[in-house]
Design a protein around this nucleic acid. Structure first.
Lengths: 228, 228, 228, 228
DNA sequence: GATGAATGAGGTTTCATTCAT
DNA sequence: CATGAATGAAACCTCATTCAT
C-alpha cells in the first residue's frame, strides 16, 4: 500500500478513537488493531503517539479553513463577518466536541506547544477574526486603536469558557443565541451609551428616522415588540 | 497527631508539589515521603489522589475570597470594581501560575467537574463579577439587559486565553495594562461611537425617540405605566 | 515479608538467571515469575534492571573478599602470596564463568562504570595484588620503583585475555599451570639473565655465590643433588 | 553500480556509524539512510547486521597489518621490536577508540567468536608479537622455554586493561610512557636481580658479601632455606 | 491511627529482518 | 539489482491503590 494512503488511514482511525476516548485512554494497540496492522507500523509512520495526535489536529484544522474562507468571501460588513466567525466557532464546537476536548485538554498544555505547528494553525484560525476586525476598523465600522490581539483572546476565550459546560458537562450549546449575544456585547460594550450617540446632525436624523419607522411598524402589528 | 492537623499538613505539602510538578508528574509517594509518612496514610485522609487535588484547589479558592471581598468593600463605582476584579484575576494568575495550570489542565476537565465543589467555588469566585455587573446595571452605569453570565465567560475566558502564553510558554503577563485594555474594550465595545456625550439640543432628538418608543410601548401594554 | 529478605531473595534469583542467560537475555518478568512475585515488586527494590545487575555483582564481590583475606593471612613470602592471587583469580573464573562474563561484557562497558561502586570494589579486589607487590618491594623480594598499577593491569588483563577462550569458547582453564607460568614470567622477566653471559672475572663472583648457595642447600638436604 | 563498490560503500559508512555510536545504538536504517539506499539493500550485501560488523572489523584489521609489517621490517633487536609492537598497539587504541570498543564489547563476546575470521585475524595480529618473541629467543636475547602464548595474553590483556579507563572513562593514554614501562616490566621481571647485573665492581662485591652472609647463616640454621 | 509491601495492568517504543514488487 | 512497507515480539518501567499487620 502506498505510504501516503497508509498514513491517511492511520490518521483517520486515530482521529476516530482519540475523539471517542480521549488521548490518554487510547492505546496505540487499539489504533493498529482497528486497521488490522501491527503496532510497529503505526510507529513507522508517526514517531510518537503524541505526534500522531498533533497530526490529527493539524489535519482537522486544515479542513476547517477551507469552509471558513469560502463562507467569509460572501459575507459583507464587518459586524456580519464578525458574527459569522463567532457563530461558526460555536457550531464547530457543537459538531466536534471530541476534537475540541482533545485540543483544550491534551494538545494545548503540552510542553513546547507555543512553538508547534498546531499552535501556528490555531493562530491562523483565530487570525481570521483579527483580519475581520482590522477590516472593520479600516472601514470605519469599528473604533480605532482597538487592542485586536486582546479582542481575539476575549472572543475565543469567552466562547471556550461558555462551551465548557457543554464539552465537559451536560449543558447544551445554543450557537445562534450566543453568537448574537457575544456580538452585541462586544460590539456595543456594556456601558450605558449616554444619550446622543449622535455626533453629526445628519447621522442622528437618519438613525432617528430608522427608529421612528420601527415604532410605527410596531404600532401596526401590536403582537410583536418594536425590535422583532 | 490530631486528625485535622495531619490533613492540613498533607494538603500543604501536596499543594507545593502539585504546583511545582503538575498533577500527573506528582507521585503520592513523594507527598508521603516529604512528610515522613507512609503512603497509606495519605490515602487514609484522602480517598484518591484526584480528591486530594480537588481539596487543595478548594482550600486555595477559600483563601482568595477573603482578600477579594475585603478589597472590593472599599472600591466605589461599577467600572472601578469591574476593573479591580479583572486586574486581580490577572495578578492571581501571575502569582499562582502552578495553581492555575492545575485548575486549567487537570481539574476542570475531569468527569463530573460540573457538579463538584470546586466548580461551585469557581462559580462563587466568578460570581463576584456577576454581582459587580448587576450592581452596575442597577446603578445605571451599565446597560440594561446585559447577558451577565455570558459576560462572565467573556471576561474570565478572555483573561485565561490571554494568559496561556504566560502559563504554558515564555510570555510575560502585564496585569495593569491588560486590566485597563479589557475594561475599556468590554465597557466601551468595539463599535464606533458616533457621537458625543452630547448634551447639545440636536442630540436631544434621540431622547425624543426614546420617549416615543416608551410611549408606543405603553400603548401596546396599557396596564403598565409608560416608564415600565 | 521483611524488606531485606525480599531484596536478598531477588538478588539471589537474579544472580542465578543472569549467570545462566546473560544480562540482555534475562527478562525481569522471569526473575519476578521465579519468585512468584509481581514484576513491579522487583522494581520497587531495584530501580533498574541494570542497577539490579550491579547489586548482584557487588554482593558477589563482597563474598569473594572474605575468602581472599582469610587465605592470604596464612601465606608467607611475596612471591607465594603473588602466586596465590593469580591462582585464585584463575580458579574464580573457572568456578564463576557466568559471573565473569557478566562483568566482562555487561558491567564494565556501561557508561559511568568508572565512577560506580562496582568499579570501586573491583579496584579493592585487584588492590590486594598491589599490596602484595608493595610488601614484596618493601621486603626486598621485588625490585624498587616498579610501576605497580601497570603491573596490576598486566596480571589481571593477562589472566582475562587468557581466560577468554574458556569463557567464550570451548577451551579449558588450567589454573595451577598458568598460575605458575604467569608468576614465573612476571617475576623473572623474559630477558636472558646476563649473569652468566659475563665472562669477565668480576662478574664471576656472582656465579661463585650461586654455586656456594647450591652447596649450602645440598648440605641441608643431603638426599638431593646440589643442582636440585 | 558494481557489486564490490556498493559493498565497499556500505562498509565505509557502517564503520563510521558503528565507531561513532556503537553497535547496539546503530540502526541499519541509519546506515542505509546515509547512503541514500533502501534498508533491504544493506541486507542484500550483508546477511546480518552482526556480519556487517564483523566485516568492518576484518577490513580494519587488514589495514593495520600493512603498516605493522612495513614498520617492523626496519627495526632491529628483539627488545626494540617488542617495544614497537606494544607502543603501536597503544597508539592504535588511542587513535581508534571507537573501533576498539566495538571489538572489546561487541565482537569478542559474540557466540562462535573463537572460530570466526575476526578471531583468526586477531590471532594473526597478536601473532606478530609471538614471532618477535620467538626471534628474540632464537637470537639469545630472550630466555628459552618462555610460554609465548601466555606472554601474548599478558601483553595484550595488560594493555587492554590499562586502556579501559581511556576507552570507557575519561583517562588519557600515554603510549610512550606505558610502552616503556610494559617493556621494562615484562623484559626485566619484577624480582630483584641479585647478580651480575652489576655494573660497578663495588656494588657487586657488597651484594656478594650479602649473599655470603646469608649462605653462612643458612649453614648455621640448617632447617631454613637461605632465603627464608 | 499508621504502616509499607505488594500489586498488576498496561503503555510506549525499538529494529533486525523479510519478501513481494 | 533495488526497494521499503510491514512485521511482531518483548522489554522496561510506573504508580495509584489496597490491606494485613
Amino acid at each position: 500500500m502506498a505510504s501516503d494512503e497508509r498514513a491517511q488511514e492511520i490518521l483517520a482511525v486515530a482521529r476516530d478513537i482519540f475523539v471517542a476516548r480521549g488521548f490518554h485512554s487510547t492505546a496505540v494497540t487499539e489504533i493498529a488493531g482497528r486497521l488490522g496492522v501491527a503496532e510497529g507500523t503505526v510507529f513507522k509512520y508517526f514517531p510518537t503517539k503524541r505526534e500522531l495526535l498533533n497530526r490529527v489536529i493539524e489535519q482537522w484544522y486544515g479542513e476547517l479553513f477551507g469552509d471558513y474562507t469560502k463562507d467569509l468571501s460572501v459575507i459583507r460588513g464587518a459586524r456580519a463577518r464578525f458574527r459569522y466567525l463567532v457563530w461558526r466557532h460555536l457550531t464547530t464546537i457543537r459538531e466536534w466536541p471530541g476534537m475540541c476536548r482533545l485540543i483544550f485538554s491534551d494538545v494545548r498544555s503540552q510542553p513546547g506547544y507555543s512553538r508547534s505547528p498546531v499552535h501556528r494553525m490555531n493562530l491562523a484560525y483565530t487570525g481570521l477574526l483579527l483580519d475581520v476586525v482590522r477590516e472593520g476598523i479600516a472601514a470605519g465600522e469599528f473604533r480605532d486603536h482597538l487592542p485586536v490581539e486582546l479582542l481575539r483572546d476575549v472572543i475565543y476565550g469567552g466562547i471556550e469558557h461558555h462551551a465548557w459546560g457543554f464539552l465537559y458537562g451536560h449543558a447544551t450549546l445554543d450557537a445562534e443565541r450566543y453568537a448574537d449575544q457575544i456580538t452585541d456585547l462586544v460590539c456595543g460594550g456594556i456601558e450605558r451609551r449616554e444619550a446622543g450617540v449622535a455626533s453629526s446632525p445628519e447621522t442622528d436624523l437618519s438613525a432617528l428616522a430608522d427608529r421612528l419607522e420601527r415604532v410605527a411598524a410596531s404600532l401596526r402589528s401590536p403582537d410583536k415588540g418594536p425590535r422583532a
